[in-house]
Structures are given as structure tokens and as C-alpha cells.
Nucleic acid binder design. Sequence first.
RNA 1: GACCCCAUCGUCUAGCCUGGCCUAGGACGUCGGCCUUUCACGCCGGUAACGGGGGUUCAAAUCCCCCUGGGGUCGCCA
Length: 466
Amino acid sequence: MSQIVTRFAPSPTGFLHIGGARTALFSWLLARSQGGRFLLRIEDTDRKRSTQEAIDAIIDAMQWLGLDHDGEIYFQSKRALRHNEVIDQLIASGHAYWCNCSKEQVDAMRETAKAAGKKPKYDGTCREKGLDASCGGVVRFKTPLVGMISYTDLVKGTSSVHYQELDDLILRRSDGNPTYNLAVVVDDHDMGVTHVLRGDDHVNNTFRQIPLYRAMNWDVPQFGHVPMILGSDKKKLSKRHGALSVMEYEKMGFLPDAVANYLARLGWSHGDQEILSREELIQNFSTQHLSSSPSVFDIQKLEWFSGQYMQSAEPKFLVQELLKLLAIELPPLTKTRLEAAMPLLQPRAKHLIDLLEQSRFFIVEPEALSYEQSAVEKFLNAQSTSLLNELFLQLQNIKDWNEEAIEQCLRAFIENKDLKFKALAQPVRVAVTGSTKSPGLFETLFVLGQEQTLKRLKYAVQKFGE
RNA sequence: GACCCCAUCGUCUAGCCUGGCCUAGGACGUCGGCCUUUCACGCCGGUAACGGGGGUUCAAAUCCCCCUGGGGUCGCCA
């Protein structure tokens, strides 16, 4: 069997939203899973609405998600000559004709059809008129009059529609430019695309496009239409409720692998397995398990995925991402400390932003620590600070700073004072981290290091004591 | 309006093609418990679904028909 070729063909009229990203992901997965090629084509024929910013945004987003395409990027706008060449062939072979019906006339036809309880469409007035380029009109495709067109969708199965339902669609506008449906067919053919995975909203175009392939005697690719993604209100995801750019998810601190995994599992399944690495995704992807019904986007589940990825990530990698986010350099020692802190923080973070916030106290000097008001009020009073003062002396005596030694020291301390562990733990925690919430105390102190721990205790005692 | 598509827990889904192993499984969420120095993580347990009606069959979530509900498309936009 020959190599399969898939493509993603966005129109650059805005950022790449989550729905488009998922479609791209599926196409990418299909190609990668079969050792095929994944191409990128920018459908920029609508010059008024296409922007360079949008093109860049789409490319950035795909790169972030790890969807690498093969070969050069195709720009549909650069292919107008070829499109017109095909249109001319279609006219020459009798599959297309010139039409100079005015917009008003066509509108009237549609009204008439609609009034008769039929599908509004052009009635074929100019079909046999034998008009030529001099008419200054458009070129229409001669849709077969009888019979039906059917195809088997990769995700929805076989479906068909009567040719009578179809319009004689316009291939070339009166300004000489090719239309979308023509351009797509020509490009997909020229690019050697064998499998077209695209949004649900294109199913009806498929019935129009297949006859074009046939008229040109071209191989018809396989089509698969993936259902759209809905908002929590079950309405199509719109800018109003959560149709965010995939780059927004980066800003929220999600790891690209987590987003890709979530997206893949939204509308596709591999048994009961939720977490799939990129390799597993590639290995197991198949259009057979694509769902044929729409799915609701659930940020809570994305967060869960993300949390899983945070937990299994490499500390080094996380630190690197954190520093990118902070856009700062850290002194080597602090960086090492931060890296040591990662395993403590990972189970507590849903995404990089969480991690960033929670790791802050590990890398700043005591003076820069932000103490939570309520935590201080509750745990750092005259009594507890004097306790901390005493503890300071004990901790100072530890020769070999490790978790066991710290634990021993603290336990001995409370035993001596006949205190509950909690009575000491929370004040220490607040003094050292600024918050009542933190990883385990011993491991926190250990990672912080003796010097920092002592510095912080001292600082807190001075600041909040008396 | 016409045409096309879709329909399992609140959500993502397994199962449907090749009926019985489904008193419908997993995951997120949620609720309860355990763990515990806080917060998480983790663990254990509970909650909750085959849209309705007809068939076919010994047997239907699975096959067929109808209904209902939802969505998509009907552009010299893509």
C-alpha cells in the first residue's frame, strides 16, 4: 500500500482554537501512525480576512503542540493559476459552464425553491446556453442531474445525497478568482493527499467535492469528519465561552503534551486508557475509534491530565520551563535548590503557574518572602516566635543536614517541651514558607538548606516576635 | 423550510460492526472514609447513564422502523 498523506488546511483569519488544534492533531496522528506525511496548507484565498499574524499564530500553536508538518507550507493564494487551469479543463471537457445570472436572479430562484418546500439552489438557467468568457459572469460546475452521490466517511460511515439536492456550484468568481471548493480539490489532489480529516461542518462540501474529483478523473481521497467541540452549555464552542487559542492554554501553564493528550482523548479513545504518551498516541491512533458525536470541552479534566503530566515530568525540564516563564537567570545554587524542590511540588501543581507560585518561596531571600496575613496572625505570635527562637539554636547544631536529622531534632524538641507536633510545625512552616500550605516540613527544610532555614527563622522571629 | 449527521452516568468514554460474557466497565467531577505536621498526592468506597415507542430474536445498549431531541449545511466565505 502506498504512503498516506494527510493535511491540515486552516484559513488564517484568526488564532488556532482548540477545535482546529484537535483536527490538526488527528491528521498528524493519522499520518505519523502510518508512516505517512502530514502537510500544512494555508487557505488564504480570502485576502481581506487573511492576515500574516494569523498565519504566524497558527504555525506557533502547531509548533507548541508538537505537530510538525512535512515539506514546505502550501499557500493556496499562490496557486490561483493552477486552479484556473483546472477550471478551464473542466469547461473544455463540458463539466463546467459560464453563467451570467445576476445575484438578484439567483436569489429569486432560491426563494422560489424554498417556497416550494425544496432546498434553495441555483436552477441551472445558463447550463446549456453555451456562454463564454465574454459574458463576464462566473463559471459553474455541471452537477449531475440524476442519481446520487455517496461516500464512506472514515468516522461517520456511509452516507449519500441526491444530486438534485446539490447546486451547480461556482468554481470561478466573476473577478476571476477560484472558489474554495474548487481550490481545495485541486490542492488536495496536487499535494497527493490521500486522507482528509476535517471538521464536521465540511460534510456537505464533501458531496460537492467528490464530483469534482470524478470530473477530473482523479482519485478521490478518504474523508473523515470529526464532530465539533462543544462548550459546557453544549453549544458550539465560540469566542464567547471558551474557544480559546491554544496559546491561551500555554499561558495558563499547561504542558503541550498534556493538552495534546487531553485533546486526543476528547473524541477518540483507546479502551480505558486515559494517559497516552506521544509515542503511544502515534502507535495506537486509528480513525476507527474516533467518536461520531460531538464532545464537551471540560477544563477540569484537562487540569487532571495536566496534573498527571506535572507529576511525571522531569525536574530538570520543569525548572527550565519555570525559568522561561520567569525570564530570569538563577544563581547556580538556587537553581539546584529549585530542582531539588520539584519533586516536592509536582504532586501539588496542576500546571506551571501553580508550580511557579508554589516554588517561589524556595528561591527568594527571606526579605522577599510574602507572608500570608492570616497565617501570620494565627501562627506567629509572641509565644510561638520564642519557640522558634529556641528551635533556631537546636537546628543550628545539626552537623549533617538531612531529613532524618531534621526530623529527629524537631521531635526531640517537642518532646522536651511536651508539645504536640502540630504546635511547632505550623509556626515553623509559616516562618519558613510564608504560608500554612507547603510540602512536608522535613523535606522542605532539607531542600531549603540549613543556612536558608536558619535565616528565615531568624527573620520571622525578628519581624513577628514581640 | 430542505438536506445531511448525531444520541450510553453531570462530563469524556468502553461496549454497538461480529446480539448472550452488560444486574452496562473505566476516567474526570462530586460525596464519604483512610493516610496525615498543613496543603496536595495516593488509596478505599458511594453516586450516577443505554432519549421514547414499536418490531426481529430464546435473548437487544448492540439489528430494523418510527418518534423526539440536538447539531451541521444550504454564499461570487473558507
